[in-house]
Nucleic acid binder design. Structure first.
Length: 153
DNA sequence: GCCAACGTTGGC
DNA sequence: GCCAACGTTGGC
């Protein structure tokens, strides 16, 4: 399977690219949206991820991460003390899946959403068309464009 | 902090 | 299976 590209959102107050850099890798727990889950289940080790900071001014892509595990059940769905606990999920048939991601790169200056929206070749990004989905697929061309924008092109 | 857009739930 | 009500996300 050819390498694929993704975009994952995080509120920097909760878990920023700096947190990821400090930790090296993390499990992307707490996703409770079926589209986002399905995207994570489609991920493979080595896929690259645009790491997006939402709810900051301006929001935008802060850097790059890499998928470093296959999808596996989100442990927080079985944890009664977790706010992500889901009583309808069972170990035999887990509802929620996640992957681990690892830090790759932090952009010197992030690529802001207004700049992304201003690029005609990025007009079809899920980010632009359906802003709420927290784990999105990105095309290789879109990924490359964002990376070039971060490099100042 | 507001509120539009979207996803989910549940009554019928 | 429809759709109103509700909760959440996330740009502004």
């Amino acid at each position: 399977m050819a390498k694929r590209y993704w975009l994952m959102k995080s509120e920097p107050d909760v878990y920023s690219i700096d947190d990821l850099e400090g930790d090296g890798r993390t499990l992307w727990d707490g996703v409770r949206n079926y589209s986002a889950r399905n995207n994570m289940r489609a991920m493979e080790v080595g896929d690259l991820v645009l790491y997006y900071h939402s709810r900051q001014d301006p929001p935008g892509v802060a850097g790059i991460a890499r998928v470093c595990s296959a999808a596996y059940p989100d442990p927080t769905q079985f944890d009664r003390k977790s706010k992500y606990f889901d009583e309808k999920s069972t170990e035999a048939e887990p509802r929620w899946w996640l992957v681990d991601i690892e830090f790759v790169e932090k952009f010197e200056s992030g690529v802001g959403l207004p700049d992304i929206k201003a690029r005609p070749e990025l007009a079809d990004m899920v980010l632009v068309r359906q802003s709420r989905l927290s784990v999105q697929a990105v095309t290789e061309a879109e990924f490359r464009t964002v990376r070039e924008m971060a490099a100042g092109h």
